[in-house]
């Protein structure tokens, strides 16, 4: 056997060993669950050997290595899911909560119904021990864009101060403003649209 043939056969042999080791050692399991809104999503699990869709609650597939085809979907019991994934699932954070506060036209005064939402925001911050709160100011398109940028900054600042006044730490709040650039309801310029005069508060 000449030298190059020997090198080639070594390479082939070692890659076979690698593939065998890899597929023998590693295994992936994926299980689709019902989300907090009661919906069940859709996953496509694939590798070079094939692809499987899982679309039903508690449906699972296993993949025994990168070169073996994902197994046909199989339903997992709640018990099996909690024994295999309980520790991870227990640590899954609640998804961030979004609040939208509205303002009176051209002003930094909250509408009455939005004022009434402040206690909810404070309660959410407390319940989640949140240290990551975003306050983002917006306006409608009435008035020019420079004016609206300043107005959205003032709106964000009013909400920020309101939260700080209620005991939220200033360094836990990031506030920004988008002026009239990100309307909730798209309108022509110079349109008075109550839904766009808002500050969004995100509690993480």
């Amino acid at each position: 056997m000449n030298r190059s043939l020997r090198v080639l056969s070594f390479l082939i042999l070692s890659s076979i060993v690698t593939v065998l080791t890899y597929s023998g050692c590693s295994k992936t399991t994926v299980v689709l669950l019902k989300d907090p809104e009661g919906k069940v999503g859709h996953l496509v699990v694939e590798n070079e050997a094939g692809s499987v869709d899982i679309t039903k609650e508690n449906e699972a597939t296993t993949i025994a290595g990168a070169t073996s085809k994902p197994a046909a979907p199989k339903r997992y019991s709640e018990d099996k899911i909690s024994s295999q994934f309980g520790e991870a699932l227990n640590m899954l954070p609640t998804q961030p909560k979004h609040f939208i506060l509205y303002f009176k036209s051209g002003s930094t005064e909250l509408t009455d119904s939005s004022k009434a939402q402040i206690p909810d925001i404070l309660k959410t911050i407390e319940l989640r021990s949140s240290e990551d709160i975003s306050v983002v100011g917006h306006t409608d398109t009435a008035g020019n864009s420079a004016y609206n940028m300043r107005l959205s900054q003032r709106r964000a600042s009013v909400v920020r101060k309101l939260l700080i006044g209620e005991g939220v730490r200033a360094d836990h709040i990031q506030s920004t403003s988008h002026g009239e650039a990100n309307p909730l309801v798209k309108t022509a310029d110079n349109v008075n649209e109550p839904k766009n005069r808002r500050v969004e508060v995100v509690v993480r």
Binding site: T29, L32, D35, L43
Partner: peptide, 19 residues
């Protein structure tokens, strides 16, 4: 991605184990 496969995700809640 896991060592064995890639996951295409169209939502939303799921669990994965890689052994």
């Amino acid at each position: 991605t896991t060592p064995d496969a890639t996951l295409g995700v169209r939502g939303t809640k799921f669990v994965v184990e890689v052994k």
